[in-house]
Amino acid sequence: MKNPKSDYPELRVKSSTENLVRIREFVNNSARKFGISEEIVGSLVLAVDEASSNIIRHAYKNQPDGEITVVLFVEDNQCTIVLTDHGVGFNPDQVRTPDMVAYLKEKKRGGLGIHLMKKLMDEVDYHSVTGEYNKLVLRKKIA
């Protein structure tokens, strides 16, 4: 049987920050084809940028030869974006909500991306099979 999801737009890129531009363009163009509003497209683009930046930094430790796959689809008025990597597992649920005042005093900056991703999306799910793959699933209602 044909996998229905094989028709969904998919992007495969290497784990370099240089590719963030391509990732953003992919999300922007694919989401617009589904008729999603500009405001929500903006949130999707930023959330996927944050997710990809984390994969590059934490899963692949800034090594540019890893692979990131991004798939986007819409079902029942909900946009789902799945990011897959084969790096070191990283669970966003283990990152605490940053205390911004304390952050400034300590000159810290990490953890903001995950916090932002959770604020922008309705749901953020993470699934990791050690040594095989990590899957991050972002969901947002589009109407």
């Binding site: 944050e50 930046s53 000159k107 903001l112 991306g113």
Partner: peptide, 12 residues
């Protein structure tokens, strides 16, 4: 993105 926001946080 947050990488840019992080720069302002790191230096203020």
């Amino acid at each position: 993105s947050s990488a840019g926001l992080g720069v302002f946080m790191a230096y203020i």
